[in-house]
Design a protein around this nucleic acid. Structure first.
Length: 384
RNA sequence: UCCCCGGUAGCUCAGUUGGCAGAGCGGGUGGCUGUUAACCACCUUGUCGCUGGUUCGAGUCCGGCCCGGGGAGCCA
């Protein structure tokens, strides 16, 4: 019925009310007041009932749908890459081991655990990335993407890291670095537009109560052209800046958080794509440039949260890949199938990885990544 | 993992020089009211993170540990 009160056009008039499930007000933890996000994290089974976590859940779901739409509409094939992997070092940090062996009394051979007696007949881990497997399908089907959980056993205690997080990884055949950067820019803009269009109520909620700049930031990014600079240019800009950095800038060293923030927040206040990093600070699979000292890598840096996308053109030349693997001290046997992709009908290809939870963070303005995933897993914390 | 800050009532916090454990909110009861985080009165609430020490006496001082926050590293 019509409501005489302000701020609402209609209201319910109940003829009959039945209580289906009571909640003792003396015990119910959610009070009629503002709770801290830290406290709500300790009651993860009740926090989705709050307006903030409801809005986060809806936007997270909408973002997820937008990502699938974006790729499906462009003919990308969604690939389910494995969660359990026996590639013992995918090169992206510490892995969680998966085993059915009795940890109190594992089978031993010559003082070493005998993993041939383990479930898979060898040591197995949770994946840190679906990229290498995505490359297999890209070189068969063309454009593909993965979107699934990823696991890192790093002891990272920050507002931007989870031990279990979701990652989006497109991989495109017949694509070079410029094409990869273009895809990343188009992708982010499409996702942001989708959210502004489809979640206006939740977005104004975030803008009002969480971060008063989120909507404006997203709108600006949609309209802006991402700045593209090479690592070498970035180092020059940083050196010329006369900023008082805690970490010195020099060619060959990785960019620190403060450097990335300067580039994206002060130098130009918009997303910056840094390309062509020194090969020493990037993984073996990135394509060696003609200068012999840099690789075709790219990082998309966003104001406030820093790196949101990391990608590269992959090394498609057999000899070049082999020598980079040897330089990195990797076993060629472990990656025999990865090398065979270059031996049998190789093609230029490129892709990137996007931290999905960081994307949710950026879109909602939520400052801690533990508050944009329903059940966060971090060091010393996996309750619920 | 490193640096800094914190942990006191269900929640958010105060607690002086080492000397009886506090407030607001919440909850209960009553009142009032087309309310919007209602309002008024009264009542209710403690393993002061854990542990060892100093002291006549420790929330307060010292050591160790656990957990949380901010920053850094690693990265997405």
């Amino acid at each position: 019925m019509a409501s005489p009160a302000q701020g609402q056009s209609v209201e319910l008039q109940a003829a009959d009310v039945t209580c289906l499930g009571g909640a003792d007000p003396a015990k119910y933890p959610l009070q009629k007041k503002r709770h801290s996000l830290e406290f709500l994290r300790t009651i993860a089974h009740l926090r989705p009932r709050t307006n903030t976590f409801g809005a986060v859940a809806r936007v997270r779901s909408a973002l997820s749908g937008a990502i699938h739409n974006f790729f499906q509409n462009r003919g990308f094939v969604y690939i389910h890459t494995p969660i359990i992997t026996t590639s013992d070092c995918e090169g992206a940090g510490q892995m969680f081991q998966v085993t059915t062996l009795d940890l109190k009394q594992p089978p031993m051979i010559a003082g070493q655990v005998d993993f041939s007696a383990d479930f898979f007949g060898q040591a197995a881990n949770l994946t840190v990335s679906g990229q290498l497997e995505a490359e297999i399908y890209a070189l068969a089907l063309g454009d593909v993407y993965t979107f699934g959980p990823t696991f890192r056993a790093e002891n990272s205690n920050t507002s931007r890291h989870l031990s279990e997080f979701w990652m989006v990884e497109p991989e495109c055949a017949f694509c070079d670095l410029a094409g990869d950067v273009g895809l990343a820019e188009e992708f982010l803009k499409a996702i942001f537009s989708h959210i502004l269009q489809h979640c206006p109520e939740d977005m104004s909620f975030f803008n009002k109560l969480i971060d008063s700049t989120v909507i404006e930031t997203l709108e600006k990014i949609i309209q802006s052209d991402f700045e593209r600079i090479s690592y070498t240019e970035a180092v020059e800009i940083l050196t010329r800046s006369r900023e008082n950095f805690a970490f010195p800038v020099s060619w060959g060293a990785d960019l620190a958080t403060e450097h990335e923030r300067y580039l994206t927040e002060k130098w130009v206040n918009k997303p910056v794509v840094v390309t062509d990093y020194p090969k020493e600070i990037k993984p073996f699979y990135m394509r060696l440039n003609d200068d012999g000292r840099t690789v075709a890598a790219m990082d998309v840096l966003m104001p406030k949260i820093g790196e949101i996308i990391g990608g590269s053109q992959r090394e498609e030349r057999y000899q070049a890949l082999q020598s980079r693997m040897l330089e990195a001290g990797l076993s060629l046997d472990t990656y025999w199938w990865y090398l065979e992709l270059r031996e049998f009908g190789s093609a230029p290809h490129a892709g990137f990885g996007l931290g999905f939870d960081r994307l949710v963070q950026f879109v909602t303005g939520m400052s801690n990544i533990r508050d944009v995933i329903p059940f966060p897993r971090t060091p010393k914390s996996a309750a619920f």
